[in-house]
Amino acid sequence: MAGRLAVRVAGALVTAAVLLTGSTALAIWWTARQDARPDSDAIVVLGSAQYNGVPSSIFEARLEHALRLYEDGVAPRIVTVGGRAAGDEFSEAEAGRQYLAEAGVDEDALLAVEEGVDTLESMRAVGAEFDDRGWQTAVLVTDPWHVLRAERMAEDAGITASSSPTRQGPAVHTRTTQFRYILRETAAYLLYRATGESVAGAPGIG
Results as ranks from 00 to 15, higher is better:
residue 76 P to Q: 05
residue 64 E to C: 12
residue 78 I to T: 03
residue 66 A to Y: 00
residue 86 A to Q: 13
residue 66 A to V: 02
residue 68 R to W: 00
residue 57 S to D: 14
residue 72 D to L: 14
residue 90 F to H: 14
residue 90 F to E: 12
residue 90 F to S: 13
residue 63 L to G: 00
residue 64 E to T: 12
residue 85 A to Q: 13
residue 81 V to T: 15
residue 71 E to G: 00
residue 60 E to C: 00
residue 63 L to I: 02
residue 90 F to Y: 15
residue 64 E to A: 12
residue 72 D to H: 12
residue 62 R to H: 10
residue 82 G to M: 12
residue 63 L to N: 01
residue 77 R to Y: 04
residue 70 Y to W: 14
residue 54 V to T: 15
residue 64 E to L: 15
residue 65 H to E: 11
residue 64 E to Y: 05
residue 67 L to S: 04
residue 83 G to C: 09
residue 86 A to R: 13
residue 87 G to K: 07
residue 72 D to W: 10
residue 63 L to K: 02
residue 87 G to Q: 10
residue 90 F to A: 14
residue 76 P to H: 03
residue 53 G to P: 03
residue 66 A to L: 02
residue 56 S to G: 06
residue 84 R to M: 11
residue 87 G to E: 08
residue 71 E to N: 13
residue 61 A to V: 04
residue 66 A to E: 01
residue 86 A to M: 09
residue 66 A to W: 01
residue 68 R to S: 14
residue 77 R to T: 08
residue 81 V to W: 00
residue 92 E to Q: 15
residue 90 F to T: 12
residue 52 N to G: 11
residue 55 P to M: 05
residue 73 G to L: 07
residue 89 E to K: 10
residue 80 T to D: 04
residue 64 E to H: 14
residue 79 V to N: 01
residue 66 A to G: 02
residue 70 Y to M: 09
residue 65 H to M: 08
residue 80 T to A: 05
residue 55 P to E: 05
residue 81 V to G: 03
residue 84 R to L: 03
residue 77 R to H: 06
residue 63 L to C: 04
residue 92 E to I: 07
residue 51 Y to M: 09
